[in-house]
């Protein structure tokens, strides 16, 4: 059997913080792990209270738990989820997570002292890594979720998002008896731009088209890349007439802007406008089909114009 020098050696080699406190919360033991983590030597900790070592230490839950353990000889746990930490141990090399203090899971058990006096033995487990991992994971998941709804080139919503959103929105409109205007937008002669100047230039045009159009929309409007150079914008709470006004504003802004270093007027767009209202409802598919049909009327009429469903 392996012989240990003492129990102190075992405690000092344990990857946990171990503190023994008496009834008045005076420290009787402070292990090596704590010395390393806090830079407070055992000889400077023993005989003192935690508030002597950390002047701001005032942890009501911890103090109550220690009193409870000593009075009732039963354990207490302090979760990271509810307490974050007990001892304010600074993290020396802060990573990109920016957590300034070690996150801790703390367990307190009763322990009989030599003279029969009850003590509390406190075990402090460093759970910072798992907290960071879980928050990084949460961020990653959130980002993945968002990415799956976004068009990678322009950053606006994609078609997948649109169908989910539209279904819920139409239900909301029905419940609240509110209207919804829909514009379908298409860049005029985009194929020609792509063929003449290359796809890179084409991408640049798409990005600046989105930028300019976005400035004409409200934050509550939903702007979607429908595919290629075709876009859809939904304007909640807007009747057809308001939709036509917004569409005109977009068309004028595009024509007046020099998109991707083209001269103003060189790049234009055509827009079809449809709408949903409580007295004259339709499906999401019909709403889009109507806007699309009128977009093609705008194209056939000579482009750079708005044609609404009248």
């Amino acid at each position: 059997m392996l012989e240990f020098t003492s129990y102190k050696d075992i405690c000092d080699n344990t990857p946990l913080g171990i503190i023994v406190l008496d009834r008045v919360k005076k420290i009787h033991y402070w292990n090596e792990w704590l010395e390393n983590m806090t830079t407070i030597r055992a000889e400077n900790a023993i005989g003192k209270a935690l508030c002597d070592l950390y002047p701001d230490f005032c942890h009501n839950r911890f103090n109550w738990a220690v009193d409870y353990v000593i009075a009732n000889k039963s354990p207490q746990i302090l979760s990271q989820a509810l307490n974050h930490f007990v001892l304010p141990i600074s993290i020396r090399s802060r990573g990109r997570h920016g957590l300034p203090v070690m996150q801790q899971y703390v367990q307190i058990f009763p322990m009989n002292g030599k003279n029969g006096e009850m003590h509390a033995i406190v075990f402090i487990q460093d759970v910072t890594e798992s907290v960071i991992r879980s928050s990084e994971y949460a961020e990653l998941m959130q980002k993945l979720r968002e990415d799956s709804f976004r068009d990678p080139l322009t950053g606006i919503f994609n078609r997948r998002f649109m169908w989910d959103w539209l279904l819920l929105q139409l239900k909301r409109n029905e419940r609240e008896k509110k209207p919804l205007a829909c514009m379908m937008l298409d860049l005029d002669h985009f194929k020609r731009i792509n063929d003449t100047y290359g796809h890179e230039k084409g991408d640049e045009v798409l990005k600046s088209f989105v930028e300019v159009t976005r400035r004409c929309l409200r934050n509550s409007d939903v702007f979607v890349r429908y595919g290629g150079e075709e876009f859809v914008a939904f304007l909640p709470d807007n009747e057809l007439l308001q939709g036509i006004h917004t569409a005109q504003r977009v068309r004028e802004s595009i024509a007046a802007s020099g998109l991707a270093s083209f001269k103003p007027g060189e790049i234009t767009c055509s827009i079809g406008v449809s709408s949903w209202n409580y007295d004259n409802p339709c499906t999401g598919e019909d709403l889009l089909r109507n806007a699309d049909k009128h977009l093609y009327k705008a194209k056939n009429n000579g482009r750079n114009q708005v044609v609404p469903v009248l």
Partner: peptide, 11 residues
Amino acid sequence: YETETMMEIGN
């Protein structure tokens, strides 16, 4: 997270 929270509240 729920387990940890419930465990402390239960305790």
